[in-house]
Design a protein around this nucleic acid. Structure first.
Length: 196
DNA sequence: CACCCGATTATCT
DNA sequence: GATAATCGGGTGT
């Protein structure tokens, strides 16, 4: 099967705009055993280097290095002692670092494997949160830095077109700094948007 | 080296 | 609605 990942130019734009535009796109994971997992991106958040809520705000560190690197690559971090979160590096030339946190997916293909990774019985709660979707897609630090624009183990392809009125904008979840920035985007009414 | 805390989730009440 | 679980990273001594 041949796929057509979104080009690097898609990610070389304003981080907030990319976060919005990633809604409706398809995240594809090819496991080592060739199992294919697919999900539609239904919730995202933007984080930039000039944004106090971003890991990149205090400058480059060993952990945040990918955020300062080339766009279109994965930035994965470990949080709360248990979970991994997936970002895609995205920024224009006006900022040093930026990324889009993938917060929720609507499962499309490979649900059986997702259920196994998540240790649950129903699809209701398998990908409706940033830590849940990485578990369902078997994404860990091993995928750190993966090129999302190449047909490899993890990439994004075109999905469905959304109308402006189908997109909701809100404050980001779980942060204490820069809460005023409305940089969370999700598809209105979608059942897999994270709960709060 | 000690301390603090977090871009979360599951499991209570 | 509230909170425990859990540990790596970042900071300061």
């Amino acid at each position: 099967m041949e796929y057509f990942p979104l080009p690097r130019s898609f990610y070389a734009r304003n981080t907030v705009q990319v976060a919005k535009d990633l809604l409706g796109k398809t995240l594809i994971r090819i496991l080592p055993n060739r199992t294919v997992l697919k999900g539609m991106i239904v919730e995202t958040e933007a984080y930039q280097s000039d944004d106090a809520a971003s890991h990149a705000f205090r400058g480059i560190t060993p952990r945040t290095q990918p955020l300062f690197g080339p766009v279109g690559h994965a930035y994965i971090y470990f949080i709360y002692g248990n979970y991994f979160c997936l970002n895609i590096v995205a920024k224009d030339s006006s900022i040093r670092a930026g990324g889009v946190l993938i917060r929720a997916l609507e499962p499309i293909e490979g649900m059986k494997a997702m259920l196994t990774f998540r240790h649950v019985q129903t699809i209701e709660n398998i990908t409706n949160g940033p830590g849940k979707l990485t578990q369902a897609f078997s994404i860990t630090k091993k995928e750190q830095g993966v090129d999302i624009t190449q047909q490899g183990s993890l990439f994004v392809t075109q999905g469905i077109a959304l109308k402006e009125k189908e997109i909701a904008i809100s404050r980001r979840v779980g942060i204490t700094k820069a809460q005023q920035n409305p940089w969370r985007f999700y598809i209105k009414g979608n059942a897999f948007v994270s709960k709060r």
